[in-house]
């Protein structure tokens, strides 16, 4: 029985450690949870990629340095979660104007549907949601490579839903003035997003 007890303890110890590792110390049980946790603990610098905005102009993320940002990933024909994200952004936009911080913050909607979302689609999308370009802009990465770099850094997974659309993890990503992703929040957590932005000023 002694050997069995020793074996059981050893197994529990080793596999317990594996489990501990695999859940970041019982703090992150989902990939999404892990992403949020790791961003908090270690801000991630954004890649220097070329984007095209709704007026067809080119820009890069470092162009926006000096401003804190909130980033969302969307595709313009999304009938579901992107709509909620858009509402969330609209709320943020209103509050930021009221706080008088509009010139020090950027709201960016990044489309990952390169096949369909050209400047025109983006412009329609922006208009429908009240993104007039002063505070809130809609963009798409220049090419697949740029897109992949962005998705990897942000930890966003996009999979086709089999009906012409996509399934993707939706969140509000806060980027600090040095261009580092520092926090990720859920739809509905706008107050926390605003608090994080104010801390940046």
């Amino acid at each position: 029985m002694l050997r069995t007890a020793a074996a059981a303890l050893a197994i529990a110890g080793i596999l317990g450690a594996v489990l501990w590792q695999g859940t970041s110390g019982l703090r992150a049980f989902t990939t999404e949870g892990l992403r949020r946790l790791s961003v908090m603990e270690q801000p991630r610098p954004l890649p220097n990629v070329r984007l095209i905005d709704m007026q067809g102009r080119e820009l890069t993320l470092p162009d926006e340095l000096g401003r804190a940002m909130v980033v969302e990933f969307i595709y313009t024909t999304c009938p579901t979660i992107c709509v909620s994200l858009g509402e969330s952004f609209a709320k943020l936009q209103d509050q930021i104007w009221m706080d008088g911080l509009a010139d020090r913050i950027r709201l960016i909607s990044i489309s990952f549907d390169l096949a369909r979302d050209g400047p025109e689609a983006l412009s329609d999308y922006a208009q429908a949601r009240g993104a007039d370009g002063r505070l809130w802009i809609a963009v798409r990465p220049e090419n697949d490579e740029a897109l992949r770099a962005l998705l990897t850094t942000f930890g966003v997974t996009v999979i086709p839903d089999g009906a012409g659309g996509f399934v993707h993890n939706a969140a509000l990503h806060v980027v600090d003035r040095q261009g580092r992703l520092i926090a990720i929040f859920d739809i509905g957590e706008e107050p926390q997003v605003l608090a994080a932005l104010r801390r940046q000023q």
């Binding site: 050997r3 069995t4 197994i11 596999l15 594996v18 695999g22 859940t23 992150a28």
Partner: peptide, 24 residues
Amino acid sequence: QWNRFGVAGFTFAIFVMLFWMVPR
């Protein structure tokens, strides 16, 4: 000798299954 009453084996199986129950 090492697995009386299956205690060690159950411990192993439980932990492995727990690990794979985690969505991540």
